[in-house]
């Protein structure tokens, strides 16, 4: 499939890059599948609660609740199957638990969330310079000043390009206006 991920290294194709080679361990190999099962069960319960208020079909045909109920049932069945599959699976001897959330990933998610929350408060330039700076450091930049310089340049180019060329109304603070955004 084209929708692939995983940046490989020479002699180690992207398709074969092993998960769990990074630092920090927060959770084991069963945490995420079990979490996914909980998510599915949660979705099933939410649908079951929500459909109680739906109208019926007018002329004997299925109403707006029909497909959601079917999907909820499938979610519940799939969740149970996933729990069984996960609990039955055993890790190979010597295999360590894959790291689910290395510190770098948590920090990147935090940076993304902060950017989403702050975008309209402090404007595009400051928010995205901060995001790009943090992302550069978290992706392995060795010198902070090169990461900061790169972040400033990239953000400014993106701001001018999309703000001016495509007329995207990016959230602006005084500094954005000053820089031509």
């Amino acid at each position: 499939m084209a929708g692939d991920s995983g940046r490989g290294t020479p002699g180690r194709p992207a398709a074969a890059v092993r998960v769990g080679a990074a630092d920090g361990h927060t959770g084991g190999p069963r945490t995420v599948p079990l979490g996914m099962a909980v998510l599915l069960l949660g979705a099933a319960v939410a649908i079951a609660v929500d459909v109680r208020g739906y109208r019926d079909g007018a002329g004997g045909e299925p109403g707006p609740a029909a497909i959601p109920i079917l999907v909820a049932l499938l979610c519940a069945v799939a969740a149970i199957a996933l729990v069984f599959q996960t609990l039955r699976s055993t890790a190979l001897p010597g295999q360590s638990a894959p790291s689910v959330l290395p510190v770098r990933v948590i920090a990147t998610v935090a940076a993304l969330t902060a950017a989403g929350l702050l975008l309209q408060q402090i404007g595009f330039f400051v928010t995205f310079t901060g995001l790009a700076f943090a992302a550069g450091l978290l992706a392995g930049a060795r010198r902070w000043w090169t990461s900061l310089g790169g972040a400033v340049v990239i953000t400014w180019v993106v701001m001018i390009f999309f703000g001016r060329l495509f007329a995207v109304p990016l959230p602006a603070a005084p500094i954005d206006v000053f820089l031509g955004g």
Partner: peptide, 28 residues
Amino acid sequence: PNQVLVPVILMFCMVGSYAINNRIADVY
């Protein structure tokens, strides 16, 4: 290197999702 690619990809993703409807909810 990744330290160049990651910030660029993240920025394109965030700006792109905002640009469709100019809605912060799409970014979330």
